[in-house]
């Protein structure tokens, strides 16, 4: 088995993601706006209730929010658009006829699209929310550096696992699209699910206590919540090993079940179109 076709598929989607520079800037403005509103809300809430023993400090909540905002496009909001198009037009047969492993082929394309969208935005927003904000005197509102060198290394590994988890969830949306022949359903379900369960809407540690452990042990937490906690050096029940263990578990489970489901779907698929 050669790896070359998957690299090609990755590079193609990666280049498509980098093509739209104006969209990157537009996204930056939107992310700054949503980030600023959340930050002011958290600041008001924390300052007004100084006695409350919150699971994360205000400073941590702000760093958490900035990283979440910068990684917005890393979330599995729906299927890969190219596959949605192909399912509608019937061009999906070309993908089925290729002499490659279909799961890896689509996975490398999905991963490349997520990373190609997310990395430029994340770097830009991190530069603006981190060093630049500190330079203009908004130190209290800025993105804090990692807790330690060790935390930075752990977080990097965790972010990489997170990107793979996200791409695997996109694979599930791709399979749903291949089944239903329309990408709309995956966006309708995927976007709210991803926004809520990843911690984009509200940091997962701030949810009511009864929900917190449940929220930690679901696949979307592995995308950005767990890496961010490692980055800030926050305590996770069970420590670093549990954190990475949860991520590896979900990556393995999503891949194994997903592969099985994909083969079943493909074997009974009827392609539409001429």
């Amino acid at each position: 088995m050669t790896i070359k076709p998957y690299v090609t598929s990755f590079v193609l989607q990666w280049k498509i993601g980098l093509r739209y520079r104006l969209a990157v800037l537009a996204g930056l403005v939107a992310q700054m706006w949503f980030g600023a509103i959340s930050l002011m809300a958290y600041a008001a809430v924390y300052h007004h209730a100084p006695g409350v023993d919150a699971p994360m400090t205000l400073r941590q909540a702000m760093t958490y929010t900035w990283i979440q905002q910068s990684l917005f496009t890393l979330l599995p909001l729906g299927c890969l658009p190219a596959i949605g198009e192909a399912a509608k037009s019937g061009a999906i047969v070309y993908d089925l006829l290729r002499p490659v492993d279909l799961w890896n082929w689509w996975l490398s394309a999905s991963l490349a699209r997520l990373l190609g969208n997310a990395i430029p935005r994340a770097v830009l927003l991190a530069a603006v929310a981190g060093p630049l904000a500190a330079l203009v005197g908004l130190n209290g509102w800025s993105l804090a550096p990692p807790a330690s060198l060790w935390a930075a290394i752990l977080a990097l590994c965790s972010f990489i696992l997170g990107a793979f988890i996200s791409a695997s969830i996109v694979m599930w949306w791709n399979i749903v699209t291949a089944r239903t022949l329309s990408p709309l359903g995956t966006y309708a379900v995927g976007t709210p699910l991803a926004v809520l369960l990843s911690g984009m809407l509200l940091p997962l540690p701030l949810y009511p206590d009864w929900a917190r452990e449940l929220l930690l042990f679901q696949p979307f937490a592995g995308i950005s919540d767990i890496p961010i906690r490692l980055y800030m050096g926050m305590a996770i029940p069970g420590g670093v090993l549990t954190a990475l263990g949860i991520q590896c578990f979900w990556l393995a489970a999503l891949t194994l079940v997903g592969r099985f489901w994909m083969h079943r779907t493909i074997s009974r698929m009827e392609v539409q179109g001429a």
């Binding site: 809300a41 809430v45 007004h48 919150a54 709210p192 509200l202």
Partner: peptide
């Protein structure tokens, strides 16, 4: 459901802090 979920976020803040400012 999408829009109701977004209220769940605000409601959780109330649960934890008692009030919003």
């Amino acid at each position: 459901v999408t829009t109701l979920l977004s209220f769940f976020g605000i409601w959780s803040l109330f649960q934890r802090f008692g009030s919003i400012a």
